[in-house]
Design a protein around this nucleic acid. Sequence first.
DNA 1: GATGAATGAGATTTCATTCAT
DNA 2: AATGAATGAAATCTCATTCAT
Lengths: 216, 216, 216, 216
Amino acid sequence: MSYRTPKAIQEKKDAKRRHILDTAAKVFAKRGYYNTKVRDILEEAGISTGSFYFYFNNKEEVFEILYDEMINAYVSVLQEAVATMTDNAEHIGKSLIKAITLSLRAFQKNKELARIMLIGSVGISPQFEKKRTADYQKISLVFEEIFRKLLQKKAIRIPDPKVAAILFTGSIYSLITNWLQEDDSVELVKYTKPLIAYNLQALGVQYDDLDLENIY
Amino acid sequence: MSYRTPKAIQEKKDAKRRHILDTAAKVFAKRGYYNTKVRDILEEAGISTGSFYFYFNNKEEVFEILYDEMINAYVSVLQEAVATMTDNAEHIGKSLIKAITLSLRAFQKNKELARIMLIGSVGISPQFEKKRTADYQKISLVFEEIFRKLLQKKAIRIPDPKVAAILFTGSIYSLITNWLQEDDSVELVKYTKPLIAYNLQALGVQYDDLDLENIY
Amino acid sequence: MSYRTPKAIQEKKDAKRRHILDTAAKVFAKRGYYNTKVRDILEEAGISTGSFYFYFNNKEEVFEILYDEMINAYVSVLQEAVATMTDNAEHIGKSLIKAITLSLRAFQKNKELARIMLIGSVGISPQFEKKRTADYQKISLVFEEIFRKLLQKKAIRIPDPKVAAILFTGSIYSLITNWLQEDDSVELVKYTKPLIAYNLQALGVQYDDLDLENIY
Amino acid sequence: MSYRTPKAIQEKKDAKRRHILDTAAKVFAKRGYYNTKVRDILEEAGISTGSFYFYFNNKEEVFEILYDEMINAYVSVLQEAVATMTDNAEHIGKSLIKAITLSLRAFQKNKELARIMLIGSVGISPQFEKKRTADYQKISLVFEEIFRKLLQKKAIRIPDPKVAAILFTGSIYSLITNWLQEDDSVELVKYTKPLIAYNLQALGVQYDDLDLENIY
DNA sequence: GATGAATGAGATTTCATTCAT
DNA sequence: AATGAATGAAATCTCATTCAT
């Protein structure tokens, strides 16, 4: 007979909570929000209804947590990329290459959550739609500010930094969305080079072909 | 001699059918597929349950019809733009400008259906998801072939026509999606110029700034 | 331009009414009361909803008319058989043989109505169930009275004429029901001989084997 | 140590399931399959919609279970009767008497299920109709084989064992059906004697009147 | 903490019948 | 007389969530 320390108990709880989330992510990614029934998650996770509702208030909350995790993870990646950006104009190409490369890697690493973030989060509820829009605009804003700065230095050549940011992120997401819907799981990184080329060219950035060779 | 003119009846039927479709489009666009209940459409359209099911088999069918209409309308627009493309290299910029301009106008003309096509059609059902993916690939393929042709003539400079086509369409859609989620009714065409600039630059096309001034 | 006499008009109406009834009989026999939708009858008859409800008040009425027709036709057959029964004891066997033979022939002649009368009329509504029970008891009563008379003359040997009548009719109906559910349409009359033998023996009637040879 | 005894829970579940079935039997018997709405069963049983669908998939399944129970119970009774049949010719009368007596008792014991089996199971669906026909043929076959055997020994005198079996079972069922539709609760066994007399005579079996006196 | 039986609001759909033309 | 579009009550069933054990 063992006396469990409260800490051990807490760890066990955390593990179960995590297990439910991970399972839910898998199921949501496969079927989408509305076609995923709570029962599907329960069965896949091997837990009871009661447990599910002990750890979470409802289905939407579980989805929202997963969604937030994904957005935060992605924002971290972006912030990391931005942080290493120097003001040195000659490194602009390299910096943007890094931002894109890190984005793709983040999505590839967790295909399920990518699917949730980009596809599965549509049409949940009006409130959620608002949140989703806000998140996407926040991400777009990161690039918008970078572009604005670069524009001042005449390091890039675009008429409108806001629109450019939308198009930049949009092109990345469309590629990922496309990749997610391919039956055979081609390596996402295979698309990295043309993706970078397209966007750097779009921004009017002079970039070294050599930099493109060394990506990933 | 019959008691009524079948033609008049048929016209009335067509009108009612159209009315249901239009109302459904409005409601779907506002609430999304799953949050739209058949009852919502009935109330908004001021018709009875029976009428709805007299004209259509079920909710999904109504959605599918609307979706197909939108896709077909958009494909027509694209084909029109492609048809006027000459082989004359110096007109490539103009041609692509036309394709983008027509696309934006098509979406602006019918904001509701644009919302359905780009946002609301996600997660309906596995079968529908297949159809949706196929449609998007078809549209992307139109551009891919154009890019392939232009590439042979060295009129554009990109490493991969397939990826370029995805990014091209993706950037357009992301702009429209963004516009759709803006509360105020900003003119979509306001974004036309930077959108074209971004993509023409991305493709490495030499374009005349004058052409951009005269759009719309 | 012809002037139709009212009589001709009436005849046309009657013909249409009959056409609807005949078609309904066919459909009811095939699918049963509840699995037959008014629409099925309309389509099969090539008429409109309005016409149907012009000639009849509702679906149940149509069924009831068909049912009554069948019962009446059957009762007529029975009465005919009873009418020819003489009080001559030596003809009792022949008379019962005739009653059974005529019954079988009546059912075979109109398989559809047989199906409606014996199988398809179950579970329509509580009121209809009452009517149905009453009709069956009426038919049974015909035989009960015959048996009662024969019993007085000691022409048959049974403990209870009422029960005998139930069993007599029941055995006939069970044979027909069985026959109706055979996939291949065997000749019902093939069963006539053993059916008669069974019941005459049951009643303790002395019968001439020769009479059995000449049936039908 | 778990928080509850699974056994007790299971027993409660079984009891509830049984309660639903019994209630459904009562309602089906009273109103028939089509006039019984799921709601009627819920109200009569005092349960919620959810409970009903937790225990059963749909209304038809409940009906089918009840129907199968009845058929199986009846077949058991028959098999029991058949098992005690000896090859001793002089006991043939007694054996058939026993078979009929047990049949009647089985039906009397559960009037509701008898009603379902004999009356209420008509016209549910084409598939069910097939099953029903097959079941009835199976029961008829039990008697057919007995009759065939007795025929070889010349213990009975009938022209066709198959038809005789149909008529034998048909006569029993018609009596029960009749009894079911009587308003007052007449004892079914009251009819046993004339029923046996009719059928034994029909089969040409020599029976002892004494045996008939001691039935039930 | 865990379980899963129980709940019931609410969604979709059917189909007999009506009624304007 | 005929048509068939329109109606809407009513039926079945789903499934997120609750709660007694």
